[in-house]
Simulated scan of single mutants.
Amino acid sequence: MTTPTQQLSEQGVSIWLDDLSRQRITTGNLVDLIAHRNVVGVTTNPTIFANAVAHGDGYEQQVAELAAKGASADDAIFEITTTDVRNACEIFAPVYEATTGQDGRVSIEVSPDLAHDTQATIDQAAQLWSTVDRPNAFIKIPATKAGLPAITETIAAGISVNVTLIFSLARYAEVIDAYLTGLQKAQAAGHDLAQIHSVASFFVSRVDTEVDKRLAAIGTDAAAALKSKAGVANARLAYELYEKEFGSDRAKALLDAGATVQRPLWASTGVKDPSLPDTLYVTELVAPGTVNTMPEKTLEAVFDHGEIGGDAVTGAYADAHGVIDGLAAVGVDFDDVTQVLEDEGVEKFITSWHELQETVAQALTSAGGAR
């Protein structure tokens, strides 16, 4: 009897865990999730590392060594996080080989403080890539306006990229363009396009959180009927856009030259409204060639009671357009929603980054080093 996570994999959905810590690496937890939960990748972000370092075991020896060298908090963060990602890449290497580079991926994010600085993002992306030094790493770059040219230049340098914090279809179209432009530049520079991979992380649950707050304020029956429908609808329309853009002559020329598509990745798939099914953002977004990155709680819910049907996306475009049109009709400015979410997303990661800096600075001080 197959499990729901197996069924999800069979439908062409790659399951990635949205979490990483040294404990997961050293205890065999990651190996177990690969074997028993069909996990084929890992994503990280500043919040995840802040929690791992603040509450996890296993960092004491490295922190003490860094303190003895007089490392700054930022230098220590760089060493700690790249060590975790490199070691996780080693664990996922067999998956990477078995899927010819599509999965077995571990993502590490550039500092959120650089979200609005194109050149600094490009520079740190290259530094992270060379330091992790594993072909199955992904460098995460946020899809801010400043991030778009950084995505292009990083791809052009032959570095694989996970584009994060995408909320709107308009920005997603720009992300796809940035990827294709990067591939064209990489091709001109003589890079092997088959070695360059990318995913585009489209956020889901946060859309419902913001839209539902606005619908509740409107307070009409028509508004209430749209509750908790925006996130899935927006993601489904992202997949429609993905199909269109990667079916273009421009994309086909690159694919014929050995390039790979930039797969849509569903992020923020933990359900935040307790009145909703806890597997909602997994079961309603099943589509071939996608990634769903899940917090462990969501992963376990899917494994326990997820009902996985077939493709839940490509036949639902008309309904999805209807939801977005309905939001406009009741007075929800969806462009404003997605801009607010992008701004908040960057700020939340900056806050987590500063918390991580403070946690590491305190650990260095306790271990006898300078701040």
Rank of each mutant, 00 (worst) to 15 (best):
E109A: 01
K140A: 15
P142H: 10
R37L: 12
A251H: 04
L237H: 07
S72D: 11
K297A: 14
E153L: 05
M294D: 05
I324N: 08
D212A: 00
F78N: 10
A257T: 03
K69A: 15
T83L: 15
A230Y: 09
E307G: 08
A301R: 01
H116G: 14
P264A: 02
N162I: 03
I108L: 15
F138T: 00
N29M: 06
T118Y: 09
F246H: 00
T154Y: 04
R22H: 02
F303Y: 13
G315Q: 03
V282M: 06
G101Y: 09
Q187P: 12
Q357I: 12
G190H: 03
I25C: 09
A312I: 09
A301N: 07
P4G: 09
P46I: 08
A50I: 04
T209G: 06
E90R: 15
S228C: 05
V95D: 04
K69V: 06
G190S: 01
I108F: 02
K69G: 15
A52Y: 03
E284I: 01
S9I: 02
S111I: 10
Y172E: 00
E243K: 12
L254A: 13
Y172S: 02
S72V: 09
E79F: 12
V261Q: 10
E97Y: 11
V42P: 07
N292Q: 12
P142A: 08
D333L: 01
V163G: 03
A186V: 11
A225Q: 00
L299V: 05
D57Q: 14
Y96L: 10
Y317L: 13
Y317T: 08
A329N: 07
Q23E: 14
S130F: 10
L128A: 11
A253I: 11
N38Q: 14
G190M: 05
V42W: 09
A238F: 07
N51S: 12
T365E: 14
S228D: 13
G309M: 02
I108W: 13
A259G: 15
I218V: 08
D256Q: 12
I166R: 09
K272L: 07
V63E: 01
L180V: 05
E307W: 10
D123V: 03
V39A: 07
A320F: 05
R250A: 14
I15W: 10
V286A: 01
A224K: 12
A50C: 13
T279Y: 03
L180M: 11
A173Q: 12
Q339D: 09
A238R: 02
K348Y: 14
A143W: 08
A200Y: 06
A312Y: 08
F92R: 00
P135R: 05
H55Y: 14
S107P: 11
E245T: 09
K69Q: 15
I308E: 05
V337W: 14
V31C: 08
F334N: 04
L226F: 02
L265V: 02
L148P: 02
R250P: 13
E245P: 08
A67K: 05
I159S: 05
F303G: 10
R24H: 13
A217N: 02
Y239H: 04
T27M: 08
S72R: 07
E344A: 15
T181H: 03
